[in-house]
Every structure is written in C-alpha cells, then in structure tokens.
Amino acid sequence: MAIAQARNVDPALIQRTLAQHKPQIRFTLAVCAHCSMCAHSCFLYESRREPKYMPSHKMIHSIGYLFRKKGNVGLQELHSIGNIVWNRCVLCMRCYCPLGVDIPYMIGLARRICREQGVYRLYDEG
C-alpha cells in the first residue's frame, strides 16, 4: 500500500516523542529475549514465513531502531521504518509474546512518530 513520503526529518520531534516514552521503550527492548516465539501469532508471518514479518523483528527494527539511534535517522531510514509499521503490520493487536511484551503498543508508538514526520498510509491510493 502506498505511503506518504516525508520531505525532511525533524529529529527534535522524534526525540520529544521518544523521551515521553523512554522508560517503557527501554524496558521493552531490555526484556525481549529474541526468542522468536511471537512469530506464529502474526498472521502475516504465518502466510509469508519470512522473519521480517515476526512481531519482535518489526518492533526491534522500528521503535527499537529509532531508540538506538536516539531519533537521529535519515529520510531513507524513516521511510523504511514507515514501510515496516504501515505495510508489514496491520496493528491487529493479536501478537502474543510469551514474556508479555506489549508489542502493539511499541508498533503504535513507531506509527505515531512516522505520522508526526509525514510518513503515513495513503488509503485512497491503494
């Protein structure tokens, strides 16, 4: 599905959102044991069988990446994160982590950051 492309990145805005949720993000990334047991709970992973569709993979490479880079990401990186959170995840909230990690919350946060930067889904353009 088409995604609106940003013209530039505003790292300060990303940093502000990250700072608001810093403890939760750090906490979540610290707990994820990289066990991959969440994979089967994602229907997109189930149909495609590619690791990049695993809920944990999507979380680590979206909000996790933004957090590690402290919001200092380029346009290309932002668009690739946009592709993860808008196209590889439908936010159906069905992902299940055996450790209890709140994956949809984290994906939702990454979506919020993308939206703030002008990277969002263009529903009318299919």
Binding site: F27, A30, V31, C32, G100, D102
Partner: peptide
Amino acid sequence: TKLVHMIFFFLYRFLL
C-alpha cells in the same frame, strides 16, 4: 540485562 525477564515475565501479567 535481558535476564531480567526472570521477573518481568511475571510483572507484565499486570498489563495483559
């Protein structure tokens, strides 16, 4: 470290 999931495994149950 990530081994903290020893306790968070149980703590996260308050959020689910």
